[in-house]
Simulated assay, not measured.
Amino acid sequence: MRYSSQVKPISYLKANAAEVLSHLAEQREPMVITQNGEAKAVLQDVASFEETQETLALLKILALGNQDAAAGKVRPMADVVARLRTKRAAV
């Protein structure tokens, strides 16, 4: 995805806020806002933001799992399944 087509100055955002928000929701592409010709912020719709946050959370879980595996904090799957079956039978 190329962000260069979605670069707008802050003055455009101020003058067209409702249109910008509508465009963000429809296109689901982030918009870079500039101030004095320099990129200062990125706007995106809420749904895209939430998806990004969920993706980051999953990636963090994977990274933590990889760290545990590298540190030797693993158990054979058969042991885990047996433990879960024992717990389930007790309930």
Rank of each mutant, 00 (worst) to 15 (best):
G72Q: 01
L56C: 05
L59A: 09
E51Q: 14
D45C: 04
E29D: 03
Q44S: 04
A69Q: 10
V32M: 14
S48H: 11
Q35C: 08
V74H: 02
E26K: 12
L59Q: 07
L56W: 08
E29L: 09
G37F: 07
K73V: 12
M31E: 06
Q67A: 15
A70Y: 03
R75A: 06
D68P: 03
E54R: 15
V74C: 09
A41D: 11
T55K: 02
K40F: 08
L43D: 00
A47K: 11
F49Y: 15
K60L: 03
L64N: 05
A41T: 09
E50G: 06
E50Q: 09
L59H: 10
E26R: 12
S48Q: 08
D68R: 00
P30R: 08
N66T: 02
G37M: 04
M31N: 05
T52Q: 10
R28C: 08
H23V: 11
R28T: 05
G72R: 01
M31F: 15
L58D: 07
L56N: 06
A47W: 10
K73D: 09
P30H: 06
V42E: 03
L59F: 14
P30G: 12
T52Y: 13
M31S: 07
Q27A: 15
A39H: 11
A69M: 05
L62G: 00
Q35L: 09
L62W: 01
G72S: 02
L64S: 11
A70G: 04
A25H: 05
E38L: 11
K60G: 07
V74N: 04
A25P: 00
E38R: 11
Q27V: 15
N66Y: 03
L62I: 04
N36D: 12
G65V: 02
K60D: 01
V42M: 11
V32A: 00
T34P: 04
N66D: 05
K60V: 00
K60S: 09
P30L: 08
E26M: 13
